[in-house]
Write a protein that binds this DNA or RNA. Sequence first.
DNA 1: ACAAATGTAAGCACGTCAGTTACACACTGG
DNA 2: CCAGTGTGTAACTGACGTGCTTACATTTGT
Lengths: 142, 142
Amino acid sequence: MKSSRFAVASHVLVVLAEHDETPVPSADIARSVNTNPAFVRQLSVPLRKAGLVQSVLGPGGGMMLARPASEITLAAVYDAVEEEPLLATHHCEPGRACFVGRNILEALDPVLEGVEGAVRAELSKHSVSSLLRAVQRLDKKR
Amino acid sequence: MKSSRFAVASHVLVVLAEHDETPVPSADIARSVNTNPAFVRQLSVPLRKAGLVQSVLGPGGGMMLARPASEITLAAVYDAVEEEPLLATHHCEPGRACFVGRNILEALDPVLEGVEGAVRAELSKHSVSSLLRAVQRLDKKR
DNA sequence: ACAAATGTAAGCACGTCAGTTACACACTGG
DNA sequence: CCAGTGTGTAACTGACGTGCTTACATTTGT
């Protein structure tokens, strides 16, 4: 099962961007995502650690963006919630008897670095606010 | 558990590129990767479907590259063995009551397309032969 | 015929993930 | 000051992907 955290986290942040400046309770967000409030709160942990959201306790509380939506790139979202590299290497150490086995991981390393960099560069082109605008544009068309 | 198929498939192809023109039995490849011969054969299925390798049955048989190593990019390897997109979307449909839920998937689509394209472009810069050269260069240093 | 290989099906163990329940804690308003 | 609202977090479950293994039919060279 592939992780959908990046997509869901983006969804959450767009909802927060829509309700600018006012806290949104996890129950409301969960209704939009169609999942459980606790799941949204769990997802909020890495987002808070990354300084993207903050929460207000007590009645009238909830989650809200910690900085302007235009200053949150999707690369930051990706970094916050999707910690592992997307292209994994061997689970078990390759056999060191063969010279390919001895060096393949090191040879593959710059390739995987490059991929990771390309992904981050591509995601840097978008922000939460641009994603919100895209959502609004699509909704108008209906 | 993240998929390591791309890394292992690259490993296999580099081994095949080293033994140019002569078939390599799956048992030999498995020794280099440090895994099971049957697992290598399973991995060979998508590679054969993609026209990257071919196999020779019977004694003295095995797997070999179906075309020159310099003409097999790592993007082709990726396409062959890693069919699903690396960044998944929501597992369950978002709630259509909220206008964000109605449009988020469609809005996210071009972003994910862009990521996929960036990955493929980055992987196109490398080939099986360039990877083999990197392995050889690293081994000389030891 | 025999042995060396592949191709493939079936199944196991383990890890990850989404989803859920439960509960302690924090804050606000009356 | 206390009832209600909401967060933070731990624990658990079920589903699924993945690596790995066993097993067996099939092909082919000597």
